[in-house]
Design a protein around this nucleic acid. Structure first.
Length: 369
DNA sequence: AAACTTCTCAACCGCTTGCAT
DNA sequence: TATGCAAGCGGTTGAGAAGTT
């Protein structure tokens, strides 16, 4: 249907409001109240469109608007609400008396967003930015040659080589353990479980919109991601049902608004209150699991994810290895302490040497920059 | 002091939603 | 059910302020 313009385009003033205009608008609304913004300008003697009047009133002239800097409490509230609601500025503003959605949006974009980025937190997902991760940071920065302890640390990660996403997760945990800033460390640790969920939701959402004839297949793949999420209850103590429901719901919307859906799916997974959640990543359990001879649980999970990511769709993780990455072509298999990469075999005792070659290949950071 | 860059935020634009007919 | 319209929303813009060289 054709849409009528919100106001007549000709003869209406635009741009900054003058004190006289403000006065007219305030006087009129005080006398007649709000409502019918279309006819208000004419009745109030203003050469403005109704939309402009409404905006001026709601964002600036309203008597209950709080002016001045945002308090620490307000800022914390905004961050927490944003982690839950996303860019729903009006919803956030509804919980901050005296603040307008426009004001909060501006404050977010000019202050909070930058601060989160500086802390290494993605302002969209509120998760640590894994794209900035580098496993080399696991080694002591000052040590040109890694110590035996460093190599042992890396060796412990060897079984994860076939699971790039888990490798990144574990790396994040280790990095957070050595972080200089205490609160950042705590935040990263608390965020990990939620991050795992969010990554999967994000990946499902970011998958290219399917052509009409392939819609069913795409939805199937996203459902598979949800199923995969449910298959790691030993690692992520969250409600798998909830995760699956959220992913499935998100997948239904994906055809229309993939970006918004991603954000919604991530936010709906509510990272822990001030990042405290009812789920926890059990890193020791993760390491124990991957060090089992057959690592069957991980294999099962990983194969479920990867089997649903054919046709170049990386459903398993938001930061899954791209198809161009060396790992995509790895012919990997694991068995009793031996890991095979593309036909080459190495025992655990050779892990450190092997990792020197493989880790950099696994973490192709440039793909995410 | 001038020129330039960066930051801030009020206002606008275009789209969506919800309601009345 | 389809249409028209008002109101609301979120993203973006651009002028002025503030900071830097």
């Amino acid at each position: 249907m054709g849409r009528a313009p919100c106001c007549e385009k000709s003869g209406l003033k635009k741009g900054p409001w003058t004190p006289e205009e403000d006065e007219k608008l305030v006087a009129y609304i005080k006398k007649h109240g709000q409502g019918n913004w279309r006819t208000l300008p004419k009745n109030a003697g203003l050469a403005r469109c109704g939309k402009s009047c409404r905006l001026r009133w709601t964002n600036y002239l309203r008597p209950d608007i709080k002016r001045g800097r945002f308090s620490f409490e307000e800022e914390e509230t905004i961050i927490q609400l944003h982690s839950i609601l996303g860019n729903k500025w009006s919803a956030i503003a509804a919980r901050l008396p005296g603040r307008t959605d426009n004001e909060i949006k501006n404050y977010w974009n000019t202050h909070i967003r930058k601060r989160l980025l500086r802390r290494g937190i993605d302002p969209v997902t509120h998760a640590p930015r894994l794209d900035l991760l580098d496993l080399s940071a696991l080694l002591k920065p000052a040590a040109y040659y890694p110590t035996q302890a460093d190599l042992d640390t890396l060796r412990a990660f060897e079984p994860l080589a076939n699971y790039p996403d888990l490798l990144r997760l574990a790396a994040t945990t280790l990095l957070s353990g050595s972080a200089a800033i205490a609160d950042q460390q705590q935040q990263q640790q608390q965020l990990l479980p939620w991050l795992l969920q969010a990554q999967m939701a994000q990946a499902a959402a970011m998958a290219p919109p399917p052509p009409p004839q392939q819609g069913g297949q795409n939805q199937f793949m996203q459902q598979q991601a949800a199923v995969a999420a449910c298959q790691i209850p030993d690692l992520v103590h969250a409600s798998p049902t909830t995760v699956a429901q959220q992913l499935a719901a998100a997948a239904q919307q994906q055809q229309h608004q993939p970006q918004e859906m991603a954000a919604a799916a991530c936010h709906s997974m509510q990272p822990p209150t001030g990042y405290a959640a009812d789920c926890q990543l059990d890193v020791p359990a993760l390491m124990q699991m991957v060090q089992q001879p057959d690592a069957s649980n991980l294999q099962q999970w990983s194969s479920t994810v990867t089997s649903s990511s054919n046709n170049n769709h990386n459903v398993g993780s938001g930061v899954s290895t791209p198809s161009s990455s060396p790992v995509a072509g790895l012919n990997h298999s694991t068995s009793a302490g031996t890991t095979t990469y593309g036909g080459a075999s190495a025992s655990s005792s050779d892990a450190a040497a092997l990792f020197n070659l493989q880790l950099s290949d696994l973490l192709d950071v440039s793909d995410y920059m």
